[in-house]
Amino acid sequence: MRTVYVNGEYLPETEATVSIFDRGFLMADGVYEVTSVLGGRLIDFDGHLARLERSLSELDMLKPAVFDDLLDIHRELVRVNGITDGLVYLQVTRGSDGDRDFVFPDPETTEPTLVLFTQSKPGLADSPAAKTGIRVIGIDDLRWGRRDIKTVQLLYPSMGKMMAKAAGADDAWMIEDGHVTEGTSNNAYIVKGNRIITRHLSNDILHGITRAAVLRMASEAQMQVEERAFTMEEAKAADEAFVTSASAFVMPVVEIDGATLGDGTPGPVAARLREIYLEESRKAAV
């Protein structure tokens, strides 16, 4: 049985509760972060904490009182749950003042709700999919306009993954105005002529923590990076493609909307970036 963290207490998961009037439950009025754990240590923690602070600010949501203690809380959960490889999920909601209302509760009298739990994922960095690559399909992007805020509004991304599953694929890339925004839970990239192309940062996509690290490492490795929107037709004609996320790291894509990329195996750029990212991230883990 896992130990989880709820509003200042470490509890068995079977004893963890939040109010039925919590705005995260009723309004999806909350934000979250997922931090990977490799070898018992946290990957890119500072980046996740900075993005969490930004998300809270963009929604005029108070920081939890224990915000400055979040590293210690993460580490304690990793320790007590014996996590070697896995994830720590963190969620902050606006809380509740006791009833359902569209109007925000008074921040002077309402504490945000803070929940954290772990997920054990043995061999997280050794995913078989990284060796074979994944297949993606294109779907319309029907989400709200502030995708840069990491909110718990995940119904449509979940539907997108189900659309991919129904089509015999592994994931979906979302398309708006003829261009790819991002994957259902990851940032999307193509490689053409040794140039890495990925959508520029804006309100249209999540500002991925793994994205930032991978692009920095790509530049340090003298790889060319171009941040711009690209179409699905461009993607299907690319030399290779990949996605990045906190839990998948760098994941090669070998098929897009039925079109096979290259020889149908992970390309050298994605493979090298995955190798670099895992090596450097393990060194910097906390």
Rank of each mutant, 00 (worst) to 15 (best):
T14G: 11
G39S: 13
D97Y: 02
P122K: 12
M27A: 12
F104D: 11
D85T: 06
H48T: 07
D101T: 13
P112G: 01
S57H: 09
P107R: 02
E15S: 14
A50D: 14
L52R: 02
V88W: 03
Q119M: 08
I83S: 04
D85M: 05
F102E: 13
R100I: 10
D99Q: 14
A65N: 07
E58A: 11
V66D: 07
L56K: 01
A50K: 15
D99W: 12
M61G: 00
K63Y: 05
D44H: 14
L71S: 12
S57A: 15
G47T: 15
A65I: 15
E13Q: 14
L11I: 11
F45I: 10
L114D: 00
P112W: 00
L114W: 01
G82M: 15
M27V: 12
L42E: 03
L87D: 02
G8V: 14
S120N: 09
R23A: 04
V92R: 01
F21R: 00
T84E: 11
F67D: 12
T93M: 05
F67N: 06
L56H: 00
D68Y: 07
T84A: 09
T93F: 00
V6L: 07
Y89W: 03
L62I: 05
Q119T: 08
F21V: 06
R54E: 12
N7A: 08
P122M: 13
K121I: 15
D72V: 04
R94W: 01
L26W: 05
A16E: 12
D46P: 07
L116F: 03
